[in-house]
Amino acid sequence: MIIAVASGKGGTGKTTVVTNLAWLLKSEGVTLLDCDVEEPNSALFLRPKWEESNSFRQFVPEVDLEKCTYCGQCSQLCQFGAIITVKENILVFPELCHSCLGCKRICPVDAIGDGERELGTVSVGRAGAIRFVQGELRIGEAQAPPLIREVKLRGIVPARKNVVLIDSPPGTSCPVIEAVKGSDLVVLVTEPTPFGLHDLKLAVEMVRTLKLRCGLVINRSTIGDRKVWSYCQEENIPILLEIADDRRIAEVYSRGELVVEALPEYRKAFRHLYQQILTLTKRN
């Protein structure tokens, strides 16, 4: 079972939900994938011991100037302006390349070889019984999706019937799509404020575009207004859990601790959340 935890707006408690759920499920063979590769934070709470950490690289063209005839076919094909031919000169802009291999395939004289650019690192480890895979985007690198794809490839072992939890990036554009794709349920986390509701609507639209199912966690449910609840009713979105505003949770979070450890009275709530998730995914 693959559960992606996402939110339109950042900072609503996505990482709190993922890490606390993982802790609760640790005896069930859970894997946590931190796909928020721009700002991976789950490890700050679960403090895994890393077993390996590898740089993730992707193809960029490397032109052999001895062979190149400056015919310009590669530049014509490339839609991203990543390889430019001007007269007797050819320039590659690795940071613009999407690694589609088109230039290499089309080159009539085989002048393009395999260069590479580092997108970031993928680390694999364990936090007690929790298997942990994390991607970390290199500073200055713009493209998160291929790295997210790699984290999922490493982390999701198809044969295994365990629970996979995905910490997704915020927003609704390509990095989030890559993270939530293929999951059995998307748990959206929101706050009942105008910003929270506005971004929740976008996230729901995203989930529906992908034809996935979602449920909602309303965090800090006692702040703001009641509009999130009426929206959920109109749109038929199941509310899986409400967590009241509690300064102690914010303080526990600020120190990088788990709510279920520091405030054991919340274990019941997260267990309830997992039950709700199970019920929803079984209703297939």
Partner: peptide
């Protein structure tokens, strides 16, 4: 935007100052 990827890099181009809003949490 949040993060450090594509939209953030584009917003930095040509800027005179970045104002970072943070909070006292380890994340």
């Amino acid at each position: 935007s949040p993060g450090i990827g594509c939209p953030v890099i584009s917003s930095l181009a040509g800027a005179d100052l970045v104002l970072v809003v943070t909070e006292p949490t380890i994340s």
